[in-house]
Design a protein around this nucleic acid. Structure first.
Length: 681
RNA sequence: GGGCCGGUAGCUCAGUCGGUUAGAGCAGGGCACUCAUAAUGCCUUGGUCGCGGGUUCAAGUCCUGCCCGGCCUACCA
């Protein structure tokens, strides 16, 4: 029976380019969609750009253009990136569309009618200069707990969490202005009222992986705990849709984003003459959302609640995947592992990444790791060494021989691979691509020895053995074709090349069951190049550079630091790392600090380097620091400085500080966590 | 602190309902081959299945305690 399946990936936010972490999801989804089509199901893949919110508004302003202009630009970039990676949508919409506005209205009136909307006044920081309310991340200030400076609005590096209104000396990152507290009315959805529905849904449907269902029931839906009201409005100015019955308020971006799934489907329906109800109101249609674990909460509580209230079908399955790590660590700008789709594309084939991700993806919510060496090995040994090489090693003869009229005896290889099709299909179906790839590679491993033992090279110059040669070619190319078919959801390009070589397009899974015989073969052309580790290194290097440039341009708040200090004390001549290494800087704790009666500028300090190791140091900081206030704090000292005999005693090092002297002396501080005795590198 | 997942060969992992001598790919070593993108084939080295208890005729597999790693979440399921 043909299934009717609607598939979505999460809507990428229009505030940045697609990177290889995003691609895990789109590739995962695209593979599933292609697989479904190959086995004959009706499958429509819908996505859109997520375009609203403060971040977009601010960025547009900074770039001096309209939001519409910005999001049109980003949408173009996103779609180009996806196309490069062979991620093919049936429709790619935008949350800033008429269709989405209409759907938002429909959802909203359903929520209103169901009595789920409530109003509350909340206090929030407001930037009087930028004339906008500030989300937590747009405020920085001094932590009220530890006193750390320049901390974000909701938490501090010391581990404390607080409300942005508690920050000491808060500053808006938008304008630098000091925010004021303003009260505004926000609209909330009372999710608690949907508790029993949600509990039932989680229990009765098998839409969620078991771990996710447990997590939701154990955490959000735990007994004695209320689901919090969901704040779904923002006061203007806000780039988004104004709420019809609450002028001056706009739907929060997370309200209209998932509705984009519905509105984008609606657009697709209108374009293609399809009935919307067939896709969102029909029990016989499956709805599959692919998302990352970070947005689990929105897609498993709010979204089902909204769909339920609006009378639309609930998701059949929410496929949740983990995050991408690179080299065992979180992707980061500084190490160059936050690689954009665009940069990747310059150095490696998209299909390689598709294959690598496929070998790593399972139905579990687990992070996956891209190890550079592993990536190179897998692509080169599996795809090039095993799969493509199978075609390559008989390809040259095939143009002359063509394929035999009947399929020759191959010792059961083709039959075996044909019957493996079901197990491979099952693995794709449940999202266990890792297993699917393993099964396919087993087939590839079995295929190559056939060519080896058949020794076609002994036949090629013997005119009497051309029929034999043709049989060998026929077997090898048919086994290769089976692999290409099974890999087609992952490697559409390879399937195309196989199709071109054999003159028959690969369109369906069942083609793997019947050998191709009696046809001619085109001239063989290389199908894949080996991946060079150096190219990946270049990719990483380039990612470092672009991000550095960006962060210099974008992230740096405007500081107007004077150039006087540098003028007063110009830069010294260059030194080598070895020169620097001679200076042994250590973290030290001030154990005692006292005035030296006879000295004008000096304090006498005892510095602890951990354990019993201490140093006596005379420091010229008397005018700037009270001895009592120094005791206990961590400083940085030059620990291997030659001791110097002073009038008041021996000074066994130096405390690091900046400033011209006198009262303007500033000791170097060390961040939380440093231990006395640690060397400063 | 709590919840979840994991710990099997140097690396990445498989191991179904507990059932013979624990497997694969890659990497390493040896040999062979030359059709192929220094590709491939054959052979081979390599494991106290995190640790300790328990259940059982039988435990990588089940139970339990502990250790380690990851993810999630923090006055806390």
């Amino acid at each position: 029976m043909t299934r009717r399946i609607l598939v979505t990936s999460a809507l990428p936010y229009a505030n940045g380019p697609i990177h290889i972490g995003h691609l895990v999801e789109y590739i995962q989804t695209d593979i599933w969609v292609r697989f479904q089509r190959m086995i004959g199901n009706r499958c429509v893949y819908i996505c859109a750009d997520d375009t609203h919110g403060t971040a977009i508004m601010i960025r547009a302003k900074k770039e001096g253009r309209s939001e519409e202009d910005l999001i049109a630009d980003m949408s173009g970039q996103h779609q180009r990136d996806f196309a490069d990676f062979h991620v093919e949508f049936d429709h790619y919409g935008s949350t800033n569309s008429d269709a989405n506005r209409q759907q938002c209205h429909a959802f909203w009136s359903a929520l209103r009618q169901a009595g789920l909307v409530t109003e509350k006044s909340i206090e929030q920081l407001y930037d009087p200069e930028a004339q906008t309310f500030l989300a937590d991340r747009f405020v920085r200030g001094t932590c009220p707990v530890s006193g750390h400076k320049n901390q974000p609005g909701d938490n501090c590096q010391c581990g404390a969490t607080y409300s942005p209104t508690d920050l000491i000396d808060p500053k808006s990152t938008l304008s630098g202005a000091t925010p004021v507290i303003r009260t505004a009315v926000h609209l909330f959805v009372q999710l608690e009222k949907l508790r029993s529905f949600l509990t039932d849904w989680i229990d009765s449907s098998d839409a969620l992986q078991k771990e996710t269902a447990n997590y939701l029931k154990g955490y959000f839906l735990a007994e004695g705990k209320e689901l919090k009201d969901w704040d779904i409005s923002r006061p203007g100015p806000y780039f988004g849709f104004e709420i019809p019955d609450s002028p001056g308020n706009y739907w929060y971006v997370w309200f209209d984003a998932p509705i984009g799934y519905v509105s984008s489907t609606k657009e697709w329906c209108d374009i293609n003459g399809e009935s919307f109800d067939d896709w969102w109101r029909s029990e016989s249609t499956e709805i599959h959302h692919f998302i990352g674990k970070d947005i689990t909460y929105f897609h498993t509580l709010f979204w089902p609640g909204m769909l339920h209230t609006a009378g639309l079908q609930l998701p059949t399955k929410v496929h949740i995947h983990g995050f991408l790590n690179v080299g065992g660590e979180k992707m980061s700008k500084s190490t160059g592992t936050l690689i954009s789709a665009e940069t990747y594309r310059k150095y490696a084939q998209p299909d390689y990444l598709r294959y690598f991700y496929a070998t790593k993806l399972t139905p579990r919510v687990e992070d996956l790791d891209l190890g550079i060496d592993e990536f190179v090995d897998k692509v080169n040994s599996d795809l090039v060494g095993k799969v493509v090489n199978l075609a390559s090693r008989v390809g040259k003869f095939a143009k002359n021989t063509g394929l035999s009229e009947t399929y020759p005896d191959d010792g059961g290889l083709f039959e075996n691979a044909a019957s493996a099709g079901d197990a491979i299909a099952e693995a794709y179906e449940v999202g266990d691509y890792s297993r699917a790839m393993r099964l396919i590679m087993e087939l590839a491993d079995a295929a190559n020895p056939f060519v080896e033992h058949a020794k076609p090279w002994e036949m090629k110059n013997d005119s009497d053995r051309q029929d034999e040669l043709r049989d060998v070619v026929t077997v090898a190319l048919n086994l290769f074709r089976q692999l290409a078919i099974y890999l087609a959801p992952v490697l559409p390009t390879l399937a195309e090349k196989c199709s071109a070589l054999l003159g028959e397009p690969i369109t369906s899974w069942d083609q793997s069951k019947q050998p191709l015989v009696g046809t001619s073969v085109e001239k063989f052309q290389r199908m894949m190049e080996r991946l060079q580790p150096e190219d990946l290194q270049k990719m990483i290097d380039e990612s470092k550079e672009t991000v550095d440039a960006e962060s210099a341009a974008d992230d740096r708040p405007t500081f107007n630091d004077s150039d006087q200090p540098l003028k007063d004390e110009p830069m010294s001549e260059e030194i080598t790392i070895d020169d620097f290494a001679k200076v042994d800087l250590r973290v030290a704790r001030v154990l005692t600090a006292e005035h030296v009666p006879e000295a004008n500028k000096l304090l006498k300090l005892t510095l602890g380097l951990g354990g019993d190791e201490t140093r006596q140091v005379f420091a010229g900081i008397k005018a700037a620091y009270e001895p009592e206030k120094l005791i206990g704090r961590l400083v940085v000292m030059v620990a291997n400085l030659q001791p110097r005999k002073m009038r008041f005693g021996l000074s066994e090092g130096m405390v690091c500080a900046s400033g011209p002297g006198g009262e303007d002396v500033f000791l170097l501080a060390v961040d939380e966590g440093a231990q006395p005795g640690q060397r400063v590198h």
